[in-house]
Structures are given as C-alpha cells and as structure tokens.
Design a protein around this nucleic acid. Structure first.
Length: 460
RNA sequence: UCCCCAGUAGCUCAGUCGGCAGAGCAAGUGGCUGUUAACCACUGGGUCCGCGGUUCGAGUCCGUGCUGGGGAGCCA
C-alpha cells in the first residue's frame, strides 16, 4: 500500500480504514499501556496524532521511540475524541524505520535562530523552517506562473561569465589553473592558460544575457543563483542568492515599474491564498503585524516618486538623519526606510536617479542628468527591486561607456544588439530571499535560504 | 571592512564585592488508561570560548585571539 501524505489525510472529509503513513516523530507522550505519537512528514506544518497501544505487536519497542525517529504506520483514520485535532490514526502496526539517539539536537521546545543556524542540516525539521522552505517552494512556482500567464519565456542565463559588466560588486573567480603553479606573464597571472583562455567569474546578474534574449523572444525572465564576493556582514546579504530578472522588449520605465508592482502584489497574494497555514505560524510567532502588512502591499497603490522629490521630502521633513541627504548622493538605508516605513507607510518606487550613481546601461533621460532607473522600496527590507529602462541608442551607450572607462571590446556583442534592430526595452532584478523576508516577516536573510553562504561560513 | 554587544550543562540563561558551579527546559530511569511543548518522582550531566597576565585565590579584573549577534557601508 502506498503511503499517504499527512496533508492529504488531515484534509479528509471522512474516516478512513487501511491508511499508511511514513514520517518523523516530533514527540511521544505515553501513559500506562498506550502512546501518542506526533508524526510529521513535511507535507504540511501540522502533525498527525497516532495512538498506539498493546494491540500493536511490538508495543515494547514503540515505547522506546524518541523524538526524531522515523516510523512507518498502518492503521485507521478516525475522528479524534481529544481536543486539538479533528483526526487521529489508530495504529495497527508501527514499524520503526530508524531510532534517533538521545543526542538528537532538536528538542521538544523552541530553539533560537542562532542555534538552529549551527545545525543547518537539521533545522528544516522544525516547524518554523519547514514553513519557510515550503513557502519558498510555493513562491518559486508562483513566479513562474506569473510570467507564463503573461507570455514571458523562461531563459537560463549562464552561471560562469566572462563579462565583469554589471559593476554589481566583487566577483568570485572561477579557474581551473593549478593554484600551486600559476602561469605568469609580466608578473601577472596569465589566464590564456586557463580553461576558457581568459579571466572568468561567477555571475552577479543575468541581465545582459536576458537583454539579448528579450531582443529575440520579446518578454523573458531569468530565475537563478547569483554570486557576490562582497564582504557584507548584514542580515540582508548573502554571497549566494537567487534573483528573478524579467526583461521586456518594447517596454519603457513606466511599464517596468507597473510590472514590478504587479509582480510583488501577485506573489504576496499567492502566499496569502496558498500558504495560509504556514503564514499563520509567522504571524503568530515572528511578526504579529505580518498579515496586515501583506494586506497593505496587496491593496495599496505603490507610490511613484522621482528621486528629486524624494530628496526634497527628506530635506524638509525635519527628521535628523545620521547621513545628510544631498542631491547626487545615493539614498542611505535610513532614508529609504524612513520613506517607506514612516512617511508613506507603503511600498515606494523611486525613479529617475542621477546618472553618476547608476551603471552604464541605464537609459539617459532628456535632461542629460538623470537615467531611467527605479528602485522599489518596501517596509522593513528596504530595496527589494532595482531596475531600469536600458540605453538602446548605440551612440549614447557608447559615449556612456567611454565616460565610465568601460572596455568596449569586451562588450562587442552587447553593443551589437544596439546596432541590429535595437528597440526600447526595460527590466528589473528582484532579490528572491528579500521577497521571502517580506512575506514571512523573518528579519535575517540567512533564515530564508536553506544553506546560507556568508563570509567565513560555508559549513553545509 | 568599521562601530557596539555577547560567549557558563544538550538548549535558554542567572551567577552579588574576586572566595565550594546554579536554575528552567531537554535527556535517562520509574510511575500514570486520552495526552496536546502531557503530567509526577528520581538520576546523570561543566575545557565557565582559546591563550596570556594580575592575585594567596579568577566564571568574575586586564590584554589578546576566535566565534556568534545587532547596526553601518556595499547591494538584491
């Protein structure tokens, strides 16, 4: 008989004979002659309560079952006379797949997030992290659904890249050279002898590839890992994270902002509709205001504000900031959080940034001072999305690259796209972990990715 | 990388003025015929983060290193 998943059993409308489950025991409570086993198989947050008594042939062994042990149970699903659950299983047989010794690190009590990070291989077995990773899976699916419903194509951008373009931070070098015997030329590493014959790195963004694909397929998106070797030690940064990057041909900045807003609302609503039980855990134990926050995101119009106006607001608000705000400087974390958390109290999109603080590929506005860039700021997280209309005019792009001292010969293919049938196009990047922080209320990015990579730490 | 805080039992923490190492939970054993983080009783459990120093004596004071956390910068 095939095992039934616990989520399926708990949603049953009727009692059920001859049922088979497999899972891990969260706790066992015993009285003289019988035991209650709380069994979880990861299919949902809830456990199923199993009642076993002397009618089970190996009852002596059942009394030795410990927290964390794995079991396979046959029995009958019946209405539970006890409080706290609709159904329970009366066991006919309890097969012990494996016993967890007393050294099992997860106890029948709440643990700190800091401790659970030290046992990253076991923390998905807890209620909280089980919920996190189920939601992560659901929202991944929802992202694909969103784009597919709108005619976008999913593209796979390369992980290993030869272009150091995006200027998005320090990169991880990828090499097949023998590090004990590095070939040198004029005192420097000679990458001509390396696998690709040139210096290559792990990608920091799929954007440039996505642009090439958008200029053929129309609307595309990437959803993959990206890597930053920045020595960032904050609750919002990891060295390996997942990014969703749509890129749309024949789309301007306004269209870009509209799709970003629609996307964030869609994913939030999807979580509210499809992850209710797991979200309830977060709204109870992590952030009591979570559901209200998510409602605000779904129901409010995101405020769209030119950079110049954002600066004016920050200057005139009278609030003391640690860093002074001046036109031409990038907004600091405290400024962004003030705007979205205190001043507007909802998501804010800031656009038309000074060209000096943005990369070469963003489209120059008619004022020749600002570029068609936008950042979506949300409460508690800060920057969730960064995007822009891309510079599609060959001569303007070329002069911007010259201005910034970018080696054009490395981007000949990128420039080619502006020579052959160039069109206005736009896109953005959304940090998937930051979105999960927004949706779950979890405040440390290390707790929304299964095995976080941060400076000096890669145990799992 | 910078600033701040912390490190004591498996976990979460207390430890007064420098003078015998503590609690709750967890675990183990026993009890209990419907439990809900079950309950009751008993038992075991310590490199007080490492190294160095001050002192008759250091978990406690000083120096240093490591690890973790919070904030900042960089960014998504």
């Amino acid at each position: 008989m095939k095992r039934k998943k616990i989520i399926h059993i708990l949603n049953s409308e009727t009692p059920w004979d001859n049922i088979h489950i497999k899972g891990w025991v969260r706790t066992r409570r015993s009285s003289k002659g019988f035991s209650f086993l709380e069994v979880n198989d990861g299919s949902c947050l809830k456990n199923v309560q199993v009642v076993a008594d002397h009618s089970v042939p190996n009852y002596n062994d059942v009394e030795k079952i410990t927290t964390g042990s794995a079991v396979s149970i046959f029995g009958r699903l019946v209405a539970s006379p006890g409080k706290g659950q609709k159904w329970e299983i009366h066991a006919e047989t309890v097969d012990i797949i494996s016993i967890a010794p007393e050294s099992y690190p997860l106890q029948k009590k709440r643990h700190s997030d800091e401790y659970l990070r030290t046992i990253g291989h076991l923390r998905p077995r807890t209620n909280k992290y089980g919920s996190v990773f189920r939601i992560r899976s659901e929202i991944s699916f929802a992202a694909h659904q969103f784009f597919r419903d709108r005619g976008f194509r999913y593209i796979h951008s390369p992980i290993i890249t030869g272009s150091d373009c995006e200027g998005a931070g320090e990169m991880f070098r990828v090499t097949a050279l023998d590090l004990e015997n590095i070939p040198k030329k004029n005192g420097k590493t000679d990458f001509i002898h390396d696998f690709f014959g040139k210096e290559v790195n792990l990608t920091v963004s799929g954007q440039l590839s996505a642009e090439m694909m958008a200029l053929a397929l129309g609307d595309v998106y990437t959803f993959g890992p990206t890597f930053r070797a920045e020595n960032s030690n904050t609750a919002r940064h990891v060295a390996e994270f997942w990014m969703i990057e749509p890129e749309m041909a024949f789309c301007d900045l306004e269209g870009d902002m509209a799709i970003a807003e629609e996307f964030v609302k869609y994913l939030t609503a999807f979580a509210m509709d499809n992850c209710r039980e797991d979200l309830a855990l977060f709204s109870t134990f992590v952030d009591k205001t979570l559901l209200a926050t998510l409602d605000t995101i779904i129901s409010s119009d995101f405020l769209k504000l030119p950079y110049q106006e954002a600066v004016d607001i920050l200057k005139n608000t009278g609030k003391k900031f640690e860093y002074e705000i001046n036109y031409g400087n990038d907004l600091q974390s405290e400024h962004e959080r003030y705007l979205t958390e205190e001043y507007f109290k909802k998501p804010v999109i800031i656009f038309n940034y000074p060209k000096e603080i943005k990369p070469f590929y963003m489209r120059m506005n008619n004022d020749s001072k600002t570029v068609a860039a936008m950042d979506l700021l949300v409460p508690r997280i800060g920057e969730l999305v960064g995007g822009s209309q891309r510079e599609e005019r060959y001569d303007v792009l070329e002069s911007r690259m010259d201005e910034l001292g970018i080696a054009k010969e490395n981007y000949w293919w990128y420039l080619d796209s502006r020579r052959f049938g160039t069109v206005p196009h736009s896109g953005f990047g959304l940090g998937f972990e930051r979105l999960l922080m927004l949706i779950t209320g979890i405040t440390n990015i290390r707790d929304v990715i299964p095995f976080p990579r941060v400076p000096g730490q890669i145990e799992f």
